[in-house]
Write a protein that binds this DNA or RNA. Structure first.
Lengths: 144, 144
DNA sequence: ATAGATGCAAATGTTTTGCAGGAAA
DNA sequence: TTTCCTGCAAAACATTTGCATCTAT
């Protein structure tokens, strides 16, 4: 089993919450870590199934929710209606290819600053935001 | 009936497409225009029901889709999973209050410019985007 | 032994579709 | 009178919940 550090973090979290360490949780977390980003609940379920044929959708969803609570995963919803999960890291936004589904992360200090200024102008206390650019990635632009 | 100009535009569209002018379509469009912005399908249905008790959800959805195709309405999906409709006007983004649901529009040329630069940097051809700031509006910030 | 986890089936919530009857052109 | 609409019920679709059973502690 790879990702020892991460699994240790999960086990620590489970322990502090009085929750249990199970094969399913380990398997789901492992597959999630291997996928390294933007994997959908469905894909995750499929891949975990390769190792645990009887695992249910339910357990995948419940475990991902748990991982999010533990701060070990981040849930995103892009257009299309399915939840996707990423490994938490510094703040960023996304470019999404509407043809092939490719997702690219970007970071822009200037936009962050502008957002703060806008929030202040309207008296809003911003808790989170959503910023996604949808279009064609380089490969899909060339393809026609 | 108010909004004569808009209804004329709808009738013109229906005619060019060989579609029919019906009481339901008129009623839905009228209620949509009166709401002037960010009304949900459910609210729309409720309000139309005050005038046409037997109107179905289905007709409201189908009509809003038609209005979107005609360019007379714009569909938005903020967090929460319900479609909301607004009267089309120049490009803008939104601030959404997570407590009271208030929606405020904003426009920022600087962000638009930054988006273009980012798209170029990653070779994406951007078709549309989504930019929403979620937080507490002034009233809800004061309330506690 | 016991609190907690699992997996199935059924429920949820929003939107869409099939279809038979109804209305506009 | 033909083409298009409407409204109901049922389907879709992603996710959640109820519950009886199983398992880690």
């Amino acid at each position: 089993m790879a990702h020892e550090v991460e699994h240790a973090a999960l086990n620590r979290y489970l322990e502090t919450k009085g929750l249990k360490q199970t094969r399913q949780r380990e398997a789901i977390f492992e597959v999630f870590l291997e996928a390294s980003g933007h994997i959908s609940g469905e894909d995750l379920h499929q891949r975990v199934r390769d190792r645990y044929p009887h695992i249910g959708y339910t357990t995948v969803y419940r475990t991902m929710k748990l991982l999010c609570d533990a701060g070990l995963a981040h849930e995103r919803h892009f257009d299309g209606g399915v939840a996707r999960y990423e490994i938490p890291h510094e703040h960023h936004d996304h470019l999404v290819c509407v043809r092939c589904g490719k997702i690219v992360e970007f970071e822009c200090k200037m936009i962050e600053t502008a957002q703060e200024e806008i929030a202040q102008r309207y008296g809003f206390q911003v808790l989170r935001h959503r910023h996604e650019l949808y279009g064609h990635c380089p490969a899909c632009t060339d393809a026609r």
